[in-house]
Write a protein that binds this DNA or RNA. Sequence first.
DNA 1: GGCAAGTATCTTAGTGAGTGAGATAAGTCT
DNA 2: AGACTTATCTCACTCACTAAGATACTTGCC
Lengths: 160, 160
Amino acid sequence: MRPPNLSSEKTPATREALAASLLRAVRLFIAGSSLFGQRVAEKLALHPTDMQFLNLLDLLGPMTPGALAQCSGLSSGGVTVVLDRLEKAGYVRRSAHPEDRRSVLVSIVASRQKRVNANYESAQSQFHWVLKTFSDQELQTVLRFFLAAGNAGPQIQQRR
Amino acid sequence: MRPPNLSSEKTPATREALAASLLRAVRLFIAGSSLFGQRVAEKLALHPTDMQFLNLLDLLGPMTPGALAQCSGLSSGGVTVVLDRLEKAGYVRRSAHPEDRRSVLVSIVASRQKRVNANYESAQSQFHWVLKTFSDQELQTVLRFFLAAGNAGPQIQQRR
DNA sequence: GGCAAGTATCTTAGTGAGTGAGATAAGTCT
DNA sequence: AGACTTATCTCACTCACTAAGATACTTGCC
């Protein structure tokens, strides 16, 4: 007879328990991220939605309002409002789309981007502190997990 | 116009590049999660905020409106409105707090919880599909990362 | 004990972020 | 060329959320 595992949060024994622990940890991580985003936005006197837009633009580079609508889940009209707000505050710039004259390319204003990133500094230093406790190979594993999970998750892909 | 794909591709060589890739993957993962939450909420005809509440209650168990306010970032009045909505729709139940008669304990109605979880099924099956590509030890590593990152980030704590 | 201060939730009025239908303009297909 | 589609923006409206205050209970101090 197996001895009972009394510590639920410690290393799970069975693979099933391991998967459950991981799922729970992921969900908690996501819940925490949402709160964290709010906090950062608050510091910058921005709405969480605005912050989300800046993040998307920072991660994916300049993109059209339509793409932002799909990546954020906002309506087309909502995107316009957010962009107006961000543009007025000097965070982003709208420029003509080189290939489609109906369209627009939105990009982050570089100087402001630095100011935004500064607010992530404390998180990033903690992030790097966490990283120190992992070997190169372990980080590769974690990275692979995130990439796989990202691909399995809500893909923003448009069929042609 | 094609919306960008929220996933990155290459395998980094140096540790610094590895850290950068991981940071980027984490941020993309978070961005995708936010979208995913919206989609699920939409399916259930709930607001994203309501979904967030159900998640918190599912993860952390019954808690007071005040604790929900802290975990979600909403104001006290906002929590009341959300809870009214969820209670009216039959998702949660308010009951007297056993230790403080001013307070209230909010808990998920079990039968509804199942219905909510059903909407995560497709995600969970994909999740388990991803898990299959990792060994037990690798999953332990990933779990350790999430726990560490969760502790480093904004704390979501269950309060009494 | 009894008053004062603190805490938890709910109420209410007001706001403004986001929606959705429609307008405009440009690209695409036959 | 005309019809259709696509991309963004406009505008009136909605309703989710905020903030201040009300209510009810707890805690602490004299």
